[in-house]
């Protein structure tokens, strides 16, 4: 049917495909950052004399 014809002005974003899972790299970066920031917030020492 010639569906190859439409031309979006930009490329599809990078994504990671594993079996049925198809996740965009940008989304995974966000989730990764959430985990990192949360872990840091748990681990990092709150400043101050309280120790």
């Amino acid at each position: 049917m010639g569906q190859g014809g439409l031309r979006p002005p930009l490329q599809a974003g990078s994504s990671w495909q594993f079996a049925w899972l198809n996740l965009s790299v940008a989304d995974m970066v966000v989730v990764g950052l959430m985990l990192v920031v949360f872990a840091l917030a748990l681990i990092m020492r709150w400043p101050g004399e309280h120790s």
Partner: peptide, 8 residues
């Protein structure tokens, strides 16, 4: 109240 998690 002594942790960064309180900031979220």
């Amino acid at each position: 109240v002594h942790s960064y998690v309180y900031l979220f």
